[in-house]
């Protein structure tokens, strides 16, 4: 039953940035764009919270579902081609996928332990992806986190204040980062990222 296609609504999901973004090259045009900005949408995001450190059974169920483990250390994540599981607090994680299936129902159907709280946050967070050689410099403008490549490694994640907003920042690749932000603030953050990227030159996709 794991791969059962659950019913997703036929209606198109509208992102918080829908109709608000102009794609193209902006800011400093003298150099190659130092920053690429795009939105990842639509996503399935499911939050799992266990009462105590997770049981072996719980860990096994997740591993069966996604073929990798729940990250147990703070500020870390595990990732496959499709799924990203991120530590977001003591005994709390979010599972993120591009939306292809009803992830919440799937997880609910597999995780039987009643002490696990499963919350659908698919619509609660927007995801802004930043790439390009100046990405780490740009992140430093908004967050008091050491983004040095030898410190902030791939799969490293932090929840922090980013341009005065609560954000979850995950390193996907050398210069590629995914930023999760409360949906209502997505446009505000997008604009702040654009402003900060002006001097580097940026491209929106």
């Amino acid at each position: 039953m794991v791969d059962k296609d659950c019913n997703l609504p036929q209606i198109k999901r509208l992102s918080a940035l829908d109709g608000q973004i102009e794609s193209g090259r902006f800011g400093n045009l003298k150099t190659e764009p130092g920053i690429l900005i795009k939105e990842n949408h639509p996503l399935s995001i499911v939050q799992l919270e266990t009462r105590k450190p997770p049981t072996k059974d719980f860990l096994k169920v997740i591993k069966n579902l996604f073929e990798f483990d729940v990250p147990l250390s703070p500020n870390t994540s595990n990732v496959s081609d499709k799924t990203h599981i991120i530590w977001t607090g003591p005994n709390r994680w979010i599972i993120v996928e591009p939306e292809t299936r009803d992830l919440t129902s799937l997880v609910k159907s597999q995780v039987k332990e009643t002490t696990v709280a499963i919350v659908d946050l698919s619509h609660a967070r927007s995801s802004i992806e930043i790439d390009g050689v100046m990405t780490r410099e740009l992140l430093l403008k908004g967050a008091a986190i050491d983004f040095h490549p030898e410190v902030f490694l791939v799969k490293h994640c932090v929840q922090t204040t980013f341009f005065n907003l609560s954000a979850l920042i995950c390193c996907l690749d050398e210069n590629r980062f995914n930023i999760f932000i409360a949906r209502g603030f997505a446009l505000d953050l997008w604009q702040k990222v654009q402003e900060a990227a002006e001097e580097f030159g940026y491209e929106t996709l």
């Binding site: 703070p74 977001t88 607090g89 003591p90 709390r92 932090v158 929840q159 922090t160 204040t161 907003l165 609560s166 954000a167």
Partner: peptide, 15 residues
């Protein structure tokens, strides 16, 4: 001098 107080990690893990 020394004071024991609570802070909430509000934009972090909320602990």
């Amino acid at each position: 001098g020394v004071h024991q107080e609570y802070w909430q990690h509000i934009t972090g893990c909320r602990s």
